[in-house]
Every structure is written in C-alpha cells, then in structure tokens.
Amino acid sequence: MRYVGGKTRIARWVATQIAAVQGGRSHYLEPFVGSGAVFERVAPMFATASAGDAHPDLMLMWQALADGWEPPEYVSREEYAALKHAEPSALRGFVGFGSSFSGKWFGGYVDTVYDKHHGRMTKPYLQAARASVLKTAATMRDADLRAGDYRQWTPGPETVVYCDPPYAGTLGYGGAGKFDTDEFLDCASAWVDNGALVLISEGREFPGWGVLAERQRKSMLRVADGAPNTVRREVLLARKAVVPASAA
C-alpha cells in the first residue's frame, strides 16, 4: 500500500539488517507499523510478534484485516469525500491511504494517473492497495495488534524493536498528530536499558546512537508528474554500544 514514509522499497534491506543482529531473540515489535511492509518480511523470523501505530484508523484497518475483513476494490470520489469527515473505522483507514495520491492521508482522491516516467497509466490505486494489505495481513493474524503510540510498549531482553517514526525535521504523518523526536529517543533509550535491542530508521544520527547500516534511498513521491526522483540518506540506528567498530 502506498504510504508516505513507507518502507516498501527497502523492506528487504531492513529485514536483512535485523536478521544479522537478531541474536536468538524470540519476539519482534514494531510500534510504528505503518504500511506493514517491514513487518511482513520480519515478523515470520520470530516466534511471536506485536505491532502498533498511533493512527487510529490505520490500526482499525489492520485489526479488521487480521480478523478476515475484505476491503473494497473501488470507492467513488463522493464516498472518499464523505469518509474524510467520518468517524474512525477500518474502511476509513483503508481508503484514506489507499485511494489518495502517493498514499498521503486524504491528500486527494485518485484512481489512476498517467505515469510520465513510463508513458502509461498506473494501476488503479485502490485495487493495488487492496492486494497489498491482504497479503501483509496474512502475517498479522497471530500478532498482538494495538492502537496507540509507542509509549504503550515495555519491551524486554527477548525483544527486537524496529522503529520507523516520523523523521526528525519533517511534517510527520497525517492523522497521527505532531511527533516529538527527543521524547521518543528518551523512551527508546529506556527500552535499551531494559534489555531490548532497538533499531531506528532515520535520515540522520543522534547523540548516543550509531549507524548500524546505511544506504541511499530514492524518493518516489513525484514519479507520476514526471519530476526527477530525489535521493536521500537512509540509516538504521542502534545504541552505540551495539554498533560494531567497523560500522561506526
């Protein structure tokens, strides 16, 4: 599913890095599950898994999908407009991202658009989103899924925590409110002190956190209007005591 800040294009890379440092830990936690792209790849590597997100509609969607809900293949522009101002629901979560251009939360209704880079129409957004979320939901059926922000979790020594929060200095994700990076890093450090292995996706480093792995990532937000892709730095952070000297 298209999702602003989603990790679909680098999920395999993230999973490879997690596998390298898993160290026999049995539980996997994603407090910012978002599109579920990384969860789909990583959760099967662990005996048990948990996921959450502060976006209420998104988690209602994942919970309903895990329970067997079938989302629609199409919604009209009028239905989209009505859902924008409706109460939180699984359908609203699915449509708000899945039928919006570039996966921006109710960022503008779209069905198909002309892709100037490839000279063709894109696949219908909602049909593609439906196939994607149904595939991802298969890995969530036995998981502990909770609506709410990262502060609800108390991971311990058996847990690998992968965090993909709104990046520092960005506008964050629609529908989830303003994000305090410093407060989050304090919480993540407390998890580490409690024995958990915590890995954070970011675009920069922070005091006390080192780069475990790094790559360049293309931004695809403007691919449909023919604008050139931008390239940004993508880093996977861990507490410096965890980062090997060769990676520091």
Rank of each mutant, 00 (worst) to 15 (best):
M1W: 14
Y3M: 08
V4I: 09
G5F: 12
G6R: 14
I10P: 01
I18F: 04
I18S: 09
A19D: 13
G23C: 08
G24P: 03
G24H: 10
G24N: 10
R25F: 12
E30R: 08
V33T: 11
E40K: 08
M45A: 08
F46G: 03
A47L: 14
T48V: 07
D53H: 14
D57I: 07
L58H: 02
L60C: 10
M61N: 10
W62M: 06
L65N: 14
P71R: 10
P71G: 07
P71E: 11
E73D: 15
E78V: 02
L83S: 09
K84S: 07
E87G: 13
P88Y: 15
S89F: 11
R92P: 12
G93I: 11
G93L: 11
F97G: 03
S100F: 08
W105E: 01
Y109I: 13
D111P: 00
T112F: 01
T112K: 09
V113H: 12
D115Q: 00
H117I: 01
G119A: 06
G119D: 11
G119K: 10
G119Q: 10
R120P: 01
L126W: 06
Q127Y: 00
A128W: 07
A128E: 14
A128I: 04
A131F: 09
S132G: 12
S132E: 05
K135E: 05
T136A: 07
T136L: 05
A137Q: 02
A143Q: 06
A147C: 06
A147I: 08
A147S: 11
D149C: 02
D149M: 05
Y150G: 00
P157L: 14
V161H: 02
V161I: 07
V161G: 09
Y162C: 06
Y162E: 01
D164P: 00
P165A: 06
A168S: 04
A168R: 03
T170Y: 00
T170K: 08
L171R: 12
L171G: 15
G174Y: 03
G174K: 03
G174F: 02
D180H: 05
F184C: 00
F184S: 04
D186H: 00
A190F: 04
A190I: 02
N194D: 11
N194R: 15
A196Q: 00
A196C: 06
L197R: 07
G203V: 01
G203S: 12
R204N: 00
G208Y: 07
G208D: 02
G210F: 08
G210N: 04
L212D: 06
A213K: 11
R215D: 03
Q216R: 11
Q216G: 03
R217Q: 03
K218Y: 08
K218A: 10
K218Q: 09
R222H: 13
N229L: 14
V231P: 03
R233H: 04
L237F: 02
V242P: 01
V243A: 01
S246Y: 00
A247L: 02
A248S: 11
